[in-house]
Design a protein around this nucleic acid. Structure first.
Length: 303
RNA sequence: GCCGAAGUAGCCAAGAUGGUCACGGCACUGGUCUGAAAAACCUGGGAUGUUGGUUCGAGUCCAACCUUCGGCA
């Protein structure tokens, strides 16, 4: 066997981790995080690393807040972890809310992932107005520029990445050469709920994290890192920048943070909605957990 | 009870001398995404406290009423 992978995804505050821990116990599994923020050391309360200490979760606490990270790196590491867990004849359980990271596992054939970021180019382009970036890309690659939708044309990150790809030498090696992902048997469960159900849960969790001492954690982080470090561009941290640096009110920071969490949850729902081969589980419905265990059980024992 | 100020979407808020049924921001909605993704973007709907009056025409002027805030009692 040993080609099965269980994925638990979904927006924030749906109880993914708790569920995944239960599943891991029952099915002899090991957890792999798919979370772009829990990879940062020191960002604990704000990113929700509140799972029991005796539970091992792979791919968290990988780097410090002044380092940057990306999907391609995640993909590589996740493949390694999956392989290790399979070798132990255990079930890898991917749990997280970063849709892009999960996508890199489910659909690994992303050719451009081998094209590395060009720091110099990014530094240069990042200080230009978007209209100029557009013109540059238009001149370089008129055809592709015109095929972009409105959202992409106004998105400097995406435009810069496209320019980066244009300048790189073509013919990126396919990851499929390594044979990763070709024979996996994946069950992808995505937790979901109406926003009217999610928002109150988010709100209480925000309050809870403040009570747990988030502000002290931020204070401590600020002794070593600065607001411009990539790790601090994270919900639960970035909203407190004005509070700490300009003396803005705590209430404003908290409500800003809360609303950012709502918007984040919406984006996640939008992302997962259009992914293929997902079973959605509405956690606002009763007995959703038993539905999950039934589904997993059937999948685990068959095939 | 009297005097003053104010009432524009869930919240904040613009609106020279009355004239395209009203600027924005937040929230909320739907969407985009191939090495920044808890990122970075695109999109949509919703309002002039109430009732009258003046006027060709009122958020803008007048009256009454209602509500809120401040002061005096």
């Amino acid at each position: 066997m040993s080609n099965k992978i269980l994925i638990i995804s979904g927006p924030t505050a749906t109880g993914k981790t708790d569920l995944a821990i239960k599943l891991a116990k029952k099915y002899n599994g090991e957890l792999i995080s798919a979370d772009s923020r829990q990879i940062y050391q020191g960002l604990n309360i704000g990113t929700g690393k509140d799972h029991p200490q005796n539970i091992k979760i792979h791919l968290i606490d990988l780097i410090t807040p002044h380092q940057s990270f990306s999907v391609a790196q995640y993909q590589k590491l996740a493949f390694q972890e999956i392989a290790k867990i399979h070798q132990k004849n255990k079930l890898p359980i991917i749990v997280g809310g970063t849709g892009q990271y999960i996508d890199a596992i489910v659909d690994p054939n992303k050719l451009t992932y081998s094209i590395k970021p060009n720091k110099f180019l990014r530094y240069f382009l990042n200080r230009l107005p978007n209209s100029t970036i557009q013109k540059i890309y238009q001149i370089l690659d008129k055809k592709n520029f015109e095929s972009l939708n409105n959202s992409e044309k106004h998105n400097p990150h995406r435009l810069i990445r496209k320019i980066e790809i244009f300048f790189s030498k073509k013919s990126p090696p396919s990851l499929l050469k390594e044979g990763m992902g070709v024979d996996w048997n994946i069950l992808h469960l995505s937790l979901t709920a109406p926003t009217s159900f999610l928002y109150p849960r988010i709100d209480t969790r925000v309050q809870k994290r403040l009570n747990l001492g988030l502000l002290d954690e931020i204070k401590k982080i600020l002794t070593q890192y600065s607001w411009s470090d990539p790790g601090l561009n994270t919900l639960a941290y970035k909203e407190f920048k004005d509070y700490f640096s300009v003396g803005a009110s705590l209430a404003d920071a908290q409500s800003k943070w809360t609303f950012d969490e709502h918007a984040y949850a919406r984006r996640q729902l939008t992302w997962f909605k259009k992914q293929k081969n997902i079973s959605f589980i509405d956690i606002s419905k009763s007995k959703y957990q038993s539905k999950i265990f039934t589904k997993v059980n059937k999948w685990y024992n068959l095939s």
